[in-house]
């Protein structure tokens, strides 16, 4: 092994974490995980809880698949990935139910959503299966954060405009409502999540012209 040992946070490794925040964002660029971005962005709190859960599952999943990458038969690799993710999610849920029941109640529906989150499967397939453990961990972290900020940003707009609240606290004062201000109920409904994501994509591509596809 003449190869020089790579630093833990070498430029290449740092890029694994920073790329998914913008230029390779899983939601706005790769358009993955849209389903959960629509479903749970009505309130910031839930978007946040979902993001944390995805972060945990993505990092563990990436590490486990990466550790087994030389053993997994390629013909059933998708099934193996699915089993890894599903088992992790169930395990985490069982532990939460036993030790942190209140958190588990908050997570209720998200558990199913995490398993079906295409970002997780996408990263396992595209990255963890062909890379070492440490870069896979960073990649999982980066992508989860990239997913998280979009989710929280969308939830921010939907919660403020849809219910006048942030993290469940009323921020639009009662006097506004008396003057005739109304919450926009449209924001609460799923179509506005798509439109908000689209607006983020628009802003992102206006700022960074390299992201615009040629056709």
């Amino acid at each position: 092994m003449a190869e020089k040992k790579e630093a833990l946070f070498s430029k290449k490794n740092r890029k694994l974490m920073t790329d998914p925040l913008d230029g390779a964002n899983p939601i706005s660029i790769q358009v993955l995980g849209i389903c959960s971005a629509l479903a749970i962005t009505v309130q910031i709190e839930q978007a946040f809880v979902m993001s944390v859960s995805v972060l945990a599952v993505m990092m563990f999943g990436n590490v486990i698949v990466s550790a087994m990458r030389n053993l997994i038969p390629s013909r059933i690799r998708i099934i193996v990935q699915l089993v890894v993710v599903a088992a992790l999610v169930i395990l985490v849920n069982e532990l939460l139910k036993a030790f942190m029941p209140d958190v588990s109640e908050k997570l209720s529906v998200f558990v199913g959503l995490i398993i079906t989150n295409c970002i997780i499967m996408g990263r396992l397939e595209a990255f963890a299966l062909g890379n070492k453990i440490w870069p896979s961990l960073l990649d999982g972290f980066g992508n989860a954060i990239g997913y998280a900020w979009i989710l929280v940003a969308v939830a921010f707009f939907r919660e403020v405009l849809g219910s006048g609240k942030i993290w469940g606290f009323q921020i639009i004062p009662e006097s506004f409502y008396e003057l005739g201000y109304m919450n926009n109920n449209m924001m609460i409904l799923p179509p506005m999540a798509l439109i908000t994501v689209a607006l983020i994509i628009w802003a992102q591509r206006t700022r960074n012209k390299d992201l615009i596809e040629e056709n």
Binding site: I76, I79, V83, A87, L91, E94, A98
Partner: peptide
């Protein structure tokens, strides 16, 4: 492929069963 699948199912199944019963 078959052996891998069988081992995986047994290991994951056992793990989840133990977790479920234990908790």
């Amino acid at each position: 492929t078959f052996s891998f699948a069988i081992v995986m199912v047994v290991v994951v199944g056992a793990l989840l069963a133990v977790a479920s019963q234990g908790l």
